[in-house]
Design a protein around this nucleic acid. Structure first.
Lengths: 247, 247
DNA sequence: GTCATCGACTTGTTCGGACAAGTGATTCCC
DNA sequence: GGGAATCACTTGTCCGAACAAGTCGATGAC
């Protein structure tokens, strides 16, 4: 089912987790791996490239690959969907829609969703909880062509992403995230049950379909101390970037 | 000098920036690109894979690649080095060492730097500024084998990374970053000239050499509103991961 | 008009080969 | 003993080919 190079990548991940290749040690050579799995060297290279991109192994020309860590990172689905992530962590996610209404698109909406100002959009305000505690305040704006499907969802829908996939086969494929910290405003504080001015981790995000069409943008605010984000990068690939801020 | 696939990737980046391939439009096919650049299809695929990893283009089997955005992301050097990043943004970076002393490694130090508890480490406290305003408080812990070189640096050294490279050829190759938000403590507030309790964006990081040997770990706290971080991800690759927090 | 089928086109996977470039341990010379 | 040269090994780059799998518009049936 899965491509052979993905299978090999997964086997290597598990071998690292098992301690078969200890942190700080080296991986077998490409030639040895291709012999062991009965594939060509190119296929092995695709597999190890995946682990390199995840930051689990380091690679230098001329030297064997080094195991950097055995941290397990979440899949895209788990990153995008709060519910799926919580489930993978063995925690219970809750969710509740506090407000939901259609309105004309502002200039900001139009730019982010690649639509015209004044076009209808659907704004949704949700609170998400983890094991009963509210930890996340979500402000979403959906493009008009998504609005009907979103409105049909129950107010206490746990996983919006999964529900939309099951209903209309919608797939969230690409995301761009901007991360910073803000103080809780009056509304934030009330809904998240924290003091006004408490630090919140803010993630602003635009999500698109596999074809590159923007689906929604979102302003997520996490209560400090409940959730953190990790990024691995290397001299060869750097997914994370720093930006000077205008508030 | 540079590999052909890197040259092609850069040419494609520039073509996107020029608007030659508008956002929302499609890229030429692999066959056409290989003919245009006179290389094999495999080389073209290496080039577009780089752009895909950066989140600039989207890719689906069977359909032409789609241009998702023309944001320019910083290089690893610019991510790792505050000074190089500031320079690339056209701003002026400052830096000042407030405290610097050797001490035995705690359990936390030992785990992160892969050394034994009690081994000597060098702890450094720095304030970094942007155009005169203090924006970042850095608490670094260096492994002993780096300590001498770091101590030789002047207290107002602008770019530690670059200085270490020029002095001893040290290269910072891999990094793992954990991102969350915290309230400014008494010391944080005094040194960053903000009110106590102000939201700070915290990045904890471990950096290693190309061979996977830990160099240092660091706790960076940014004043809210001055700097933000961006991450692009896709269903095929997700550098960013969410983690449940223990403070 | 709507829907299913078809077919040209495009990307994904995998192979096998060749050479370039860098690493690391050994050897050798001084 | 210290340092330079050597050399086997390993990863990086690139080629050319073939087939699988998915997309998208056109065609045709109902």
């Amino acid at each position: 089912m899965a491509a052979r190079h993905e299978e090999i990548a997964e086997e290597l991940r598990q071998a690292i987790d098992r301690g078969e290749y200890p942190v700080g040690g080296t991986l077998p050579t490409e030639t040895e791996l291709s012999a062991r799995y009965g594939v060509s060297r190119g296929t092995v290279r695709q597999a190890v490239a995946a682990l390199t991109a995840e930051g689990r192994i380091g690679s230098r020309q001329g030297a064997r690959r080094v195991v950097l860590g055995n941290r397990r990172s979440q899949s895209f689905a788990e990153l995008r969907s709060f519910a799926q992530w919580a489930h993978a962590m063995g925690r219970t996610a809750t969710g509740r829609v506090l407000d939901q209404h259609r309105r004309p698109a502002t200039l900001e909406d139009a730019e982010k969703l690649q639509i015209k100002p004044g076009d209808e959009v659907l704004q949704v305000l949700r609170v998400r909880g983890l094991d009963g505690e509210p930890v996340l305040l979500e402000r979403n704006v959906y493009a008009a062509w998504m609005a009907d499907s979103v409105e049909r969802l129950p107010a206490d829908c746990i996983s919006v992403v999964q529900a939309l996939y099951e209903d209309i086969g919608m797939i969230f494929a690409y995301g761009e995230h901007v991360i910073d910290a803000v103080a809780a405003g009056a509304e934030d504080a009330r809904l998240l049950e924290v003091r006004r001015g408490s630090p919140l981790l803010r993630i602003r995000r635009v999500t698109t379909t596999p074809a590159g069409r923007p689906i929604e943008w979102s302003d997520d605010r996490y209560v400090s101390g409940t959730v953190s984000f990790t990024v691995a990068n290397s001299i060869g690939s750097n997914p994370l970037a720093r930006q000077a801020g205008q508030a």
